[in-house]
Design a protein around this nucleic acid. Structure first.
Length: 287
DNA sequence: CGTTACCTGAAA
DNA sequence: TTTCAGGTAACG
């Protein structure tokens, strides 16, 4: 659930909180061992104890908590994970799966109802990352990058946006929102976008993600920040989880369909199925 | 490509 | 009781 804006919000909060702080220990709660993908908890505890956190960065939906010796704790929140910065002894949060004990009695807690989230300790951040596309809010996210990623693909544009190998950090909320802003039908084949449509989509992706960051992320169900507070972006969405409501722009009823196995929300009037351009070859049966 | 599995709780 | 969930990896 946490997508780029939510993870970026956490990163910004975490940096001043944990930067320079000494680690006194690390442990994983019983039954949650699977959140560690590589080494066991005892080994991580041994490697972390006595070290200090330095900077916190983000790549796509991954957080990198860098240590003073160059190692990196790589965290992915998946669907329901969250990081909480709390004083030791402050109300035990249910579903706490792992705890970093810090100096001055503080704790960084990893809380995750569904246990899909992951924590990795690696020498270099890339070791813990799958192949990821460009960062959408950086200079490496170019029109050319979109073109290369989508060229020749019959896959629905919605599915292509969710594929982290194309662009890193977009999830279900911001994919639907970016497509609405672009007036593109979620089921349009990714490779069918014309240059003007790709340009519009590029700008819409950046705008919707920037808005998300500006509002501290979206809290529809589980997402909360490092203090347990909710984001505000859910009050600004145009289509996401607004099935049956009137479109802000045209009043048509927002619809919910399933694309690529994911709930997809769109305005059927603002985001119509594009008419096939007339062309002799388009009379071939659809396959 | 689409579908299923991974988990667990909240909402319908 | 059933359905649904902001993500991804592993299927077929």
């Amino acid at each position: 659930m946490p997508e780029l804006p939510e993870v970026e919000t956490v990163r910004r909060q975490l940096q001043p909180l944990v930067g320079g702080r000494r680690i006194l220990g690390f442990r994983v709660m019983p039954g949650a061992e699977r959140l560690l993908r590589g080494r066991p908890a005892a080994e991580i505890d041994a490697l972390l104890t006595g070290r200090a956190f330095a900077t916190v960065n983000r790549r796509g939906k991954y957080l990198g908590l860098h240590l003073d010796d160059g190692q990196v704790v790589v965290v992915h929140l998946r669907m329901t994970g969250s990081l909480r910065f709390r004083q030791r002894g402050f109300e035990d949060e249910p579903f706490t799966r792992a705890v970093f004990d810090l100096d001055h009695g503080d704790q960084l807690r990893f809380v995750d109802v569904r246990k899909f989230g992951t924590i990795d300790l690696v020498e270099r951040m890339e070791e813990a990352l799958p192949k990821l596309g460009p960062e959408p809010l950086s200079d490496e996210f170019t029109l050319d990058a979109i073109w290369h990623a989508f060229r020749g693909r019959h896959q629905p544009i919605k599915a292509a946006l969710l594929d982290q190998r194309n662009i890193a950090g977009i999830g279900n909320i911001y994919a639907d929102e970016a497509l609405f802003l672009s007036r593109l039908n979620p089921e349009a084949p990714a490779g069918s976008l014309r240059p003007s449509e790709r340009r519009t989509l590029h700008a819409a992706i950046q705008r919707t993600l920037q808005d998300g960051v500006a509002h501290g992320g979206a809290s529809f169900r589980d997402y909360t920040d490092v203090d347990g507070a909710e984001g505000e972006q859910q009050y600004f969405v145009r289509v996401f989880r607004r099935t049956g409501e009137p479109c802000d722009d045209c009043g048509a009823t927002i619809r919910r369909i399933v694309v690529g196995g994911r709930a997809t929300h769109f305005c059927p009037k603002c985001q119509p199925v594009r008419q096939r351009t007339r062309k002799v070859t388009s009379n071939r049966p659809k396959r």
